[in-house]
Design a protein around this nucleic acid. Structure first.
Lengths: 340, 340
DNA sequence: ACTTGGCACTCCGTCCGTGCGAGTGCCAGT
DNA sequence: ACTGGCACTCGCACGGACGGAGTGCCAAGT
């Protein structure tokens, strides 16, 4: 019935007004700023119902209403239209990201770009190692019993490890080892590289076997460790913008969580590249984030997500705009990394 | 005369009390907490002189006194004894830093360690490229006209760049190129690598010359750019501790400056490894840092500083303790990087 | 020449009471 | 089912009073 529909319209209006003004919104103001075609009194009745259903609440008796987490959720799921980016924003994305020289640079620019577009804290995850493929393995001898192994992935990520060798390395063994490793692992996804190790050990010439074993062990160790997946954080200055009213308590736990990385990374791990994921307030389950919202999405080519990126901000944020920005940036980064 | 000496003693007491309590300190409280052997009235006279000389000031008429930047400066220069680290802290340093797997890891641990020890924001600069020496150069072909060049320094830093080649690369040229570059640059400090290029171009076999030129150009570009010197920041959550009274205005500009990096890096560039450098409040010259103090020192082996590290916090900080922590951590990191 | 106790003064922070405005809930009327 | 009216409730901003902490100065003591 037209009844329920108007009520949703009222909720949408409450969210929009509260997001833009940061003041609890009352029935009179609503009637003025939106043409809902009804009087403030009617709106009051609707708001009473919305409050009973848990979508909005009032900070004190007789102040305006404020959306609850549940209210934002409904807004995001059913009431928000996709907000197209302005041409200026599209241009900003290109201008910002073109001319990046390496992976580190790309992700650094990305995080700054996202922070600037959304005026929130931005987070970008490095491409997950286990989903990347080996482009090249490099072996360098740095001392008689020590090798430096450098792994370069198809996404441009570079990892290096020092490997202690059981015995001295014979001269000439290093190039041999390099060729062997590359022919075994090149193009292999890191998540599946472990399967190759036994076969490689069998076919390797005996005098290299211990070397191969040592190097493989170190590599596997590097990869199995998903906590090593790095996170780039930017725009933390935006936290200090909202006059500290935006976050309950202080913003301290939030800053701590961002530095921990592990909390955010866990949330990131659930993204996929096709849909923008929004987590609102308490939905985050983690204490420090219970007053914040996350908008995340995976980036990468269509068939595989390389990693996640997104923003974290107060629950009172411009969801449609931020969702659009996050998605657009992820698409662009995906292309950029795919073609390099 | 004993006169001046006691006045300095009063200044020291003011600084110490204010740092620990965060309240303007009055004559009576001073007389109680320190045995200066004189009455509050005498202390008042001394404080009046100290105020006239600009070392302390009162927030309002008839509140206690607070040290000025100049007062902290005198305290740091002449009144602070070296505070030895506790055994627990020494152990924490070792425990924290041992077991780091690569450079990124070392610096990440360092910054967390410093932030935890000092309860301030910690910053660590990556080893300056121009002062590092080439350990190895790796060349990989990633497409017909594109090479990936990976530079590994003796400090473990890894930089990579994609080089677009003027023409197709003949098969077999890549290993040749690799050998050539390595024999020319291995062990050379990057700051001086530019001098080697002309000679290298002359002696290079003709068919490699254009390749060498392209690769060298990219390398020089990478190195000349000192702004690429990265900074690791940690412990920003500590900013939110001091109840926002510690920083005039908000802490927003401070967070921005930390993200900019360039401001902090410029200050870092002046460090050397032997002395701890303290910059207090307005001494920083940069607007955003005018309410903050920096404690920095270079790390590296005795003969060359690889980079800087330090902390930034409110002018009201425990200078002796923080100076000791910064120095101890820098020494440990220096050893760690020297032996790897 | 310094130090000390006393004293009057200044000013900040807090508390309390008031008035105002915004917003609500309810009710009667259309 | 909607609307206008009305009484009611709070939060907040304003303003004056109060208490306390701390100072500066002065006269007296060592």
């Amino acid at each position: 019935m037209a009844h329920d529909e108007r009520r949703l319209e009222v909720l949408r209006a409450v969210v929009q007004d509260f997001v833009s003004t940061n003041d609890p919104v009352g029935s009179k103001a609503l009637a003025e700023r939106h043409d809902l075609g009804v009087s403030p009194a009617t709106i009051r009745n609707d708001m009473a119902v919305l409050e009973e259903q848990g979508y909005i609440t009032q900070p004190h008796t007789s102040a305006g209403r404020v959306p609850t987490d549940k209210g934002y959720r409904l807004f995001v799921d059913r009431l928000s239209a996709v907000k197209p980016l302005s041409p200026a924003e599209r241009r900003a994305i290109e201008r910002f990201l073109d001319g990046a020289v390496d992976l580190h640079d790309v992700l650094g620019r990305t995080v700054r770009l996202l922070a600037q577009l959304t005026r929130q804290v931005a987070v970008v995850q490095y491409p997950t190692l286990s989903r990347s493929a080996v482009r090249h393995l490099e072996v360098v001898q740095v001392a008689s019993g020590r090798l430096l192994v450098v792994l370069i992935t198809d996404t441009g990520r570079v990892e290096q490890r020092v490997v202690e060798c059981p015995a001295d390395v014979e001269p000439g063994a290093v190039p041999e080892l390099r060729t062997l490793l590359n022919s075994a692992f090149a193009g292999v996804k890191l998540g599946e590289a472990g399967d190759k190790v036994p076969g490689l050990l069998e076919t390797a010439p005996p005098h290299l076997r211990s070397l191969v074993a040592a190097v493989s062990a170190t590599l596997m160790e590097t990869l199995v460790e998903p906590s090593e997946d790095r996170l780039v954080v930017g725009g933390t200055a935006n936290l200090a913008r909202g006059s500290a009213m935006d976050f309950p308590g202080t913003m301290r736990p939030l800053l701590e969580a961002l530095e921990e990385q592990v909390v955010v990374l866990r949330l990131m791990s659930e993204v996929d590249a096709s849909t923008v994921l929004v987590r609102i307030g308490e939905e985050n389950a983690h204490e420090a984030l219970s007053g914040a919202s996350l908008v995340t999405v995976g980036y990468g080519s269509a068939d595989r997500a390389l990693g996640g990126l997104g923003i974290v901000g107060p629950t009172r944020m411009d969801y449609p705009g931020n969702m659009a920005a996050v998605r657009a940036v992820a698409r662009y980064v995906g292309h950029l990394l795919a073609e390099s």
